[in-house]
Each structure stands twice: as C-alpha cells, then as structure tokens.
Design a protein around this nucleic acid. Structure first.
Length: 401
RNA sequence: GUGACUGUAGCUCAAUUGGUCAGAGCACCGGACUGUGGCUCCGGGGGUUGCGGGUUCAAUUCCCGUCAGUCACCCCA
C-alpha cells in the first residue's frame, strides 16, 4: 500500500479541499471586482520555455523529464512565461490594457520546508499594455482587497513597496559604484537574514564608501521624503514623482485607507526581471514567508521573443496564505452538509424515504438518509454528525416532522 | 544539494536505568438511553512501535543505514 503522497505534494481530504475552495473562490471574487478575466494554460510546457528566461541553472529547480516523444518538458514552475506567450501570440488583437488572472497549480523540485512545497496553487494577476503607474496601484490595491476579503486588516498585513530604479539611483547618490550595484542588491536582499555587521563587511568589500554603509544597512527605514529630497533635481526626479503618485493612488483605491503601505527599499524581489515598482505583502508578526509578491517587468515579453508590451503582475500562493488564515482563525471553510436528512419513524419503508429524497433532489436539494432502517434516535444522531441542515421525519400516518 | 533535530493506532500523546509496555484520550463502528440539539453509559475494530540491518538472553527504548517529517542554508513561488 502507498502510505502518503509524494514528498511536497498534498492529499486534499474534504476539509482541506473546502479550505482550498474557500481561498480560490475569494481570489476569483476579488479579481472579478477589479475586472480581471480568467485564463489558463497547460500545466506541462517545453523545458526551453523556462531555460530561455532563466538559464540552465533553473533546471535544478524544475520538475522536468523527457516525454515519450523525446521532448524535454517541465511541469510549470511559474505562469509568467506561459501568459507571456499567450499574450504575445495575440498582442495586436487583444484590447489593451489586458487584465488577466489565473490560479494555476505550479511545481518546483525543491526540498520542502515551512510554507514551501513542491506544488502549490498561485493566484496570478497581470496587466499588459499599461505603462501608467495607475496600473501598478490597481495591482497593489487588488492584493490588499484580497486580504480584506479574507478578514485581514492592516494590523495583520503590511505592503512593502519599492522601485528598482529609485533604489539604484539612491545607491548611486550615496556614492556606490555603478558596477557594484548588483552586488549591493544581493546584500540588501539578505539584510533581514544576516547580522548587520556581516552586511556592512560585505558592502565595504564591494567598494561602498564607509559613509554609505550605515545608510544601506538601515535602508528599510528610508522614507519617501528622504528619497524625494535626495533625488530631487536629478535625472531620477520624474521617477520619484511617479512613485509619489503611486503612493497616493493606492490609498485612493482603498477608499482613503493609508495604513497598508510602507516604503521599503530593501524589497529587491530576487534580483530578477523587475524594472519598476515592486511590492511584497507580509504578515506583521514576521512569522511567515511573503504572502504575495509582484511588480513591473516591462521588458520581459520582448526578451521572451514576444510583443513589446509593458507588463506587471503579482503572484499569491495558497500555502503561506493558508497558514496565516488558520493562525488568525479566519479559515472559513467546512465540509458542506446536506440540505435535508430524511428519516423514517415507526417502520416507514425505505422506499418512502427514497421517494421523498428523489423529490427534493429533483428540486436541486442535497439529500441524505440512512441506508437501512434504524431507530429514530440513531438516525438523528447520524444526521447531526453529518452536518445536515434540516432533519425531516416521515411517519406512517403521512405526516412530516 | 548541505546541515541539525525528529519518526509509537486517523489525530494528540504514554510506556521506570533496554525485560509481558504495546496503552490512554479524541475520532471511527456497534449497542443502550425512545426523542430537540450533537449528552451519558456499555462494547468493538485499528499499530509487525517508518523501513532494513546490527548489538543483546531480551529493544519502542542502544548503534548503523535508508525513507519520511520539521527547521536552517542555498534559491525562489
């Protein structure tokens, strides 16, 4: 006998499936409110679709194999290449901006740990063909409204926002050599996970001026005012103005609520393909991994050989979110019981119960009953355990109870 | 891929310095309580103690391996 699922994979018993359905229904509902439309793609893709974007190193993280036709294939680790291909193929025909979302099951061949399995479901929300910063604000607002829809508040979750271009300009204004910027990103990305002393030493080794090291180690505390004053009048001023507009738009979209956003230049998002504003959602306690992350990647479609369309999006997985919801007591999902439990008193034949069940089922009701004649108390106990909402008793004199 | 810790019934756990130690609660099944809220009582099924070796007169309890889990690193979703 097989004892359990493969490592990193989950069996969804009815309770767990109800929770997954609850999460996905909430995702879908909020995405719809923002006028995003749903799409999907194949769970299995050519391996090259991922190596072209991320290089051969990525193969170590992929669930890949050779199929019976000799093709190198991989279970999708992310949705972006797929959606980039789909949008690229019809770039000229699609009404812009394209506002799409999907809830794919994604796969990674990695050793599992808390909040990370080999498989998960991830909401992907993307906008293509919009260079306006209002689009960035729409995405962040959508992510926050999803938190709200789950009953989470800004006391539970914070949105940390940054901009790669501003971070680069900020670092250069501190005297960081341009060549050292990528290395400094790497240090910044690890600030929270290693001692400040270690970070400072690494920065010094990268040629960062002593005067700038301390400011970089505490870069998470840099606010918009400091950014604006330091970069005002420089070539980056227009970008800072855009960032300022973004910081006004998000609260406007949230009905005036300013409590969710926090400027945090330490959000680097994996050094990857992001080109502008980036953001991550974290629980305030710091107990869990990032709940959600995203940003703008204007050059990615073109680099994948597709259309030259600006693009931005975010991903939100079900694993960390589920852990957070359970920790907060907000997982509102239970196995659905039947609408009616039909019982029979005094030797009512099973056929009469079945006929009544058939009648109600014909009306679209969910109906269960004991599959053999039992005492009424037994039936009532079974009905209660099943979670059925109504307990109906048929008796020989034709009455209902 | 590397390291640390862990591994007893579906779940949570127990079992003196290795010697009837394979148990309890919950859950599940059956029965009683003949009736209004998941109460009470009785009974039952279920584990080759992750798996495979080794040490020993004897191992759940010691050693090795392996698989799995947790956490961290790596990396990222």
């Amino acid at each position: 006998m097989f004892k359990g699922a493969l490592p990193g994979f989950r069996d969804f018993y009815p309770q767990e499936l109800a929770e997954r359905a609850f999460i996905m229904a909430t995702w879908r509902d909020v995405a719809r409110r923002y006028a995003f439309v749903e799409y999907d793609g194949p769970p299995l893709e050519p391996l090259e679709l991922y190596t072209r974007k991320s290089g051969e190193e990525i193969v170590g993280q992929l669930y890949n194999f050779v199929d019976k036709g000799g093709r190198e294939v991989a279970l999708r680790p992310e949705m972006t290449p797929t959606v980039a291909r789909m949008v690229g193929a019809r770039a000229n025909a699609l009404r812009k901006p394209v506002r799409w979302f999907s809830m794919p099951q994604l796969f990674r061949y990695e050793r599992q740990q808390k909040g990370r399995l080999r498989e998960h479901y991830q909401l992907n929300v993307d906008i293509f063909g919009a260079s306006e910063v209002a689009a960035d604000a729409e995405l962040v607002s959508c992510a926050v409204d999803i938190m709200r829809a789950f009953g989470l508040s800004s006391r539970d979750v914070v949105v940390r926002v940054s901009d790669r271009r501003i971070l680069q300009a900020f670092l250069e204004s501190l005297g960081v050599p341009t060549d050292s910027v990528p290395g400094v990103y790497g240090v910044i990305d690890k600030l929270e996970r290693q001692p400040a002393q270690v970070s400072a030493e690494k920065l010094a080794a990268l040629g960062v001026p002593a005067s700038a090291v301390e400011r970089i180690v505490t870069i998470a505390d840099v606010g918009f005012d400091e950014i604006a004053s330091r970069l005002g009048g420089t070539p980056s001023a227009a970008i800072v103005d855009e960032f300022g507009a973004f910081l006004r738009y998000v609260p406007a979209l949230l009905g005036g609520d300013t409590s969710w956003l926090r400027v945090d230049l330490s959000i680097v998002r994996g050094l990857a393909y992001y080109t502008g504003i980036v953001f991550e959602l974290f629980d305030r306690s710091g107990e869990f991994r990032a709940i959600c992350g995203g940003g703008r990647y204007d050059t990615l479609l073109q680099s994948l050989g597709g259309a030259d369309l600006p693009a931005l999006g975010f991903g939100m997985g079900d694993v960390v979110l589920g852990e957070l919801l359970r920790a907060k007591g907000l997982m509102r999902a239970t196995e659905a019981g039947a609408d009616y439990w039909i019982s029979g008193a005094d030797e009512v034949p099973l056929e009469r119960i079945m006929e009544e069940a058939a009648r109600l089922r014909g009306e679209g009701r969910a109906v269960e009953f004991a599959l053999r004649e039992q005492s009424l108390s037994k039936q009532k106990k079974a009905a209660q355990a099943s979670g059925a909402r109504e307990f109906v008793t048929l008796s020989n004199d034709g009455t209902h109870g």
